[in-house]
């Protein structure tokens, strides 16, 4: 039994907007073991990127509520002073790889200067920081002298490797990967995935892998958590989730993944992700749920009461939990 590295308990993050309060992350709990890769899968707008940002304590100015506890190696980090978190935790214990977007790197600053920036701000000496950056570049398979290059001289895949190198530079325990390959072509995507596996082994990392792509998640994940409308609806070991998807939403997601050779019509989930300002009462998925439509006994239950987390039988060491009235 491996140790629990990161223990997330009942975290909430709400935003205030002119239209009302957005419950982007609403009462989510999970654990991450040492050396484990947890994939967090959900549609766009399900709050998975907000959850990622919450873990490194980066949020927009209009946040109205941050609640819950996060324990890293037994130490509460969500409410510790920002200065302490910045100096001790961020980059050094928990690092984040932002989405592969065009403006993750400053176009007019050399790679070396950008990579060392967070280290310099934390008080690391310039020479040491540069050496750490070069080492990190080497371990993501890039030449050390890339530190003297500008971002425009790099391909998209190289840029993403640089960003990954930045995240592992200070030898963190947990790396949060926020859709690290979504802007890349499939070949580069495969390269990056292989690189991530290699780094995990070399640096003994634990990953939280945020993606909308279930098949990509299966490449890397030991466990999978499914998010819907700011809530966790199902979590469990990867083999349990893929072979025995239990939540109707998870089932819908898996049946919408295209497969090679089999001649099946792709199914999809009708409707769309609800507004997080005024989410449906009870189970947030019930307006789109096929079971709710068919089974009369669920009426008055799914649309009124929030489903509790139910533990199912599973093959994996991780508990298979699902939030659905079908299993109660």
């Amino acid at each position: 039994m491996s140790m629990v590295l990161l223990d997330v308990r009942n975290v909430k993050l709400y935003y205030t907007t002119t239209k009302g309060i957005v419950k982007a992350v609403d009462n989510i709990s999970f654990e991450l073991d040492e050396g484990e890769t947890l994939a967090i899968v959900g549609e766009s707008g399900s709050g998975k990127s907000t959850l990622a940002k919450l873990l490194v304590r980066v949020w927009e100015r209009n946040v109205s509520l941050v609640d819950g506890e996060i324990y890293l190696e037994g130490k509460e980090i969500l409410h510790m002073p920002e200065e302490e978190f910045r100096r001790e935790i961020r980059w050094k214990r928990i690092a984040m790889v932002p989405q592969a977007s065009m403006n993750a790197l400053n176009p007019v600053i050399k790679i070396g200067d950008q990579m060392t920036e967070p280290l310099l701000l934390q008080g690391t000496g310039k020479d040491e920081a540069l050496k750490m950056a070069m080492d990190a570049l080497e371990s993501v398979g890039l030449p050390r002298d890339l530190v003297n290059r500008y971002p425009h001289q790099l391909s998209g895949g190289m840029k993403q490797r640089v960003i990954i190198a930045m995240s592992i530079m200070a030898h963190p325990k947990v790396v949060i990967l926020d859709e690290p390959t979504s802007a890349l072509d499939v070949i580069t995507q495969a390269n990056i995935m292989n690189l991530l596996k290699k780094l995990k082994w070399e640096y003994k990392l634990s990953y939280i892998f945020i993606t909308h792509d279930l098949s990509l998640a299966s490449e890397l994940a030991d466990s999978v958590a499914i998010m819907y409308a700011g809530k966790l609806v199902e979590i469990g070991g990867a083999e349990d989730i893929y072979t025995n998807p239990s939540h109707p939403y998870t089932q819908g997601l898996i049946s919408s993944v295209p497969t090679l050779r089999t001649d099946k019509t792709l199914s999809f989930i009708p409707g769309e992700v609800p507004s997080l300002i005024n989410p449906p009462s009870g189970c947030r998925f019930h307006p789109r749920c096929p079971f709710y439509k068919d089974r009369d006994y669920l009426k008055g239950l799914c649309d009124e009461k929030e489903p509790p987390m139910v533990e199912l039988e599973g093959k994996a060491s991780r508990k298979h939990l699902v939030a659905c009235w079908l299993y109660k």
Binding site: R57, R87, P98, N106, I109, P118
Partner: peptide, 22 residues
């Protein structure tokens, strides 16, 4: 509004640092 500014801010960069370096 670029991401590298956000990264610098969360790394603890001051306004002057961001102005000067970014």
């Amino acid at each position: 509004s670029a991401q590298y500014i956000e990264s610098a801010v969360i790394a603890g960069a001051s306004r002057m640092w961001i102005l000067r370096n970014h």
